[in-house]
Each structure stands twice: as structure tokens, then as C-alpha cells.
Amino acid sequence: MSTPDEARTAVLCQRGDVPDGEARRFDVDGHRIALARIGEDYYAIGDRCSHQNYSLADGWVWPDECALECPQHSSSFDLRTGKPNCFPATQPVPVYEIRLSGDDVAVVLP
């Protein structure tokens, strides 16, 4: 049995695998994750738009807003909080903690 201090992490990719200003989808242990990169910072949020289940990783990264825009209906989500920035989405998406170790980019899974 794990304790709260023992986080379960999953390596998604290597640091150079996601180009700056882009996002990629990863499926890990039942979690559909959109990993976005802005400069040297990585952000992981749930990949399903809360409005209509479209892949957020297929959308656009907005570095100045630190947001990811859904390609279908243009809702954007704050990469730090998962909260939608505009309609039609009104519900947040999950946010995953990122852990960097060497070249590995990993997420902490609940």
C-alpha cells in the first residue's frame, strides 16, 4: 500500500520530444493527457475538452496566456489550473503535476 508521500509517476517522453509551443497527447494508465511545452516549461492537463470531448492536444498553445485552445469550438484552458478561459466550456479539466528528471518528462498520477 502506498502512502500519500509516494507519488505514482509515469514518464511520458523525453524533453525534446514535444516542440516548443506545441502539445502532444499521451495515454497512460487510463488517463488521456495533453502535454504542452512553453519554452523549457511543461504542462499536463486532461486531454478531453470539457465542452465536447475533443482532443485538446490537437489545438493551439498560447504561450502568452499559458493556455491550450480546443480545435473544435475555441474554448481555451489555463495550463496551470485547467480552468476554461472562455465559452463554450464552463468546466475545468484535470491538471497533472510535472516532474523532470534528466531528459525524462513525467507526470504524477492520482
Rank of each mutant, 00 (worst) to 15 (best):
L100D: 04
I33S: 10
C49Y: 08
L79T: 01
D104R: 15
G30P: 08
D47C: 00
K83E: 15
A36L: 15
P4Y: 11
C70Y: 04
W60L: 15
P94Q: 04
E6R: 10
K83V: 08
Q72C: 14
D20W: 06
G82I: 04
D103G: 02
C66T: 15
M1Y: 01
Q52C: 02
D47K: 04
A67C: 09
V95S: 00
H51I: 03
Y96H: 08
V28E: 06
N85E: 01
A10E: 06
Y96T: 06
C70T: 10
D104T: 09
D20F: 02
A57D: 12
M1A: 12
N85M: 03
V28F: 00
V105E: 08
Q52D: 15
A89I: 03
A34G: 12
A106R: 08
D78A: 06
Q91R: 13
F26R: 05
E40L: 05
S76C: 10
D58F: 01
F87L: 15
V11Q: 13
E40W: 04
H51P: 09
P19F: 10
C86V: 13
A44F: 04
Q14V: 13
A7E: 10
D47E: 05
H51F: 09
A89T: 11
S50N: 05
R99Y: 00
Q72N: 14
D17Q: 04
R99I: 11
